[in-house]
Design a protein around this nucleic acid. Structure first.
Lengths: 139, 139
DNA sequence: TACTTTAATCAGGGTCTCTGACCAAAACAA
DNA sequence: TTGTTTTGGTCAGAGACCCTGATTAAAGTA
């Protein structure tokens, strides 16, 4: 079986489950919005940085942030260090969604470790981390 | 680092590179089209099966097959065993694209094995195959 | 025959993402 | 200082993707 599909199948399962958990908790967020939300740092992050991290254009990131702003999940504040820039920050309201996602993620990881065994799970993580050295365009 | 991202980063790199290779070879195919194309069996496959395998609705699969048909990469022929159904088949023209993708895939796998070493690459594949047992909705 | 299921399509709409053009602030160079 | 380039962000327009709901036709079933 093709290695691409082998990577994709567990990834999609994980993503679907996390999205379902977040939706079930009452947060109406789309996948694309979640991908941006995930990248926002504790002190706020510039739009351009978000776009790079999420691998989309500035326009796309701006569009998604607009939606998140309308939903009250993020806010834009001026960047004190640069008059052109604004920082995208997570609001109080969105803070509640983070632990929901984190809990589901922990649950999934535990299930995977249960199925693979501790040894193989460790090997998987180690191999993937090593692989990211040559496949991650951001480092 | 989050296990979801660890799976996704190499996956995306692989997909991007294969798409680039196919495009460079003169086949003007989008990602979504490629995902459908990939699933077509040697004797043709029904639309409904394609939709299931690619995890999209029949309508979406139909839309993508329409485009592929216009581009001359697939054709629809009646299914001799079922008057309602039609088989989507790969045309002569598209046959040329398959080896291009396969060669790029082989090249990438070789690079990965080079970076990880034979042992870790084997462990990675083994762990992913095991993981697909519980994450693949189709088996 | 009448009912149910299955294969596929039609119609319409929402979401995501892109290219290209543009503006304004910051950084740099002469 | 003044002009030039870079950088952060937006606007406008379009295309790609994917969905829900309704419909047609063939197949299977009671």
């Amino acid at each position: 079986m093709n290695i691409g599909l082998l990577l994709y199948i567990p990834y999609r399962d994980l993503e679907n489950r996390i999205m379902a958990a977040v939706t079930a908790a009452g947060y109406d967020v789309t996948l694309a919005q979640a991908r941006v939300l995930q990248r926002i740092g504790p002190d706020g992050t510039r739009l351009t940085e978000l776009a790079e991290a999420a691998q989309v254009t500035k326009q796309t990131a701006g569009f998604l942030v607009d939606q998140l702003e309308k939903a009250g999940l993020v806010e834009r504040v001026p960047d004190p260090t640069d008059g052109r820039a604004r920082l995208v920050r997570i609001t109080e309201k969105a803070q509640g969604a983070m632990p929901v996602a984190a809990r589901e993620m922990a649950r999934i990881e535990a299930e995977w470790e249960q199925h693979l065994g501790k040894r193989r799970m460790g090997q998987l993580r180690e191999a993937l981390e090593k692989l990211c050295e040559i496949t991650d365009p951001y480092r």
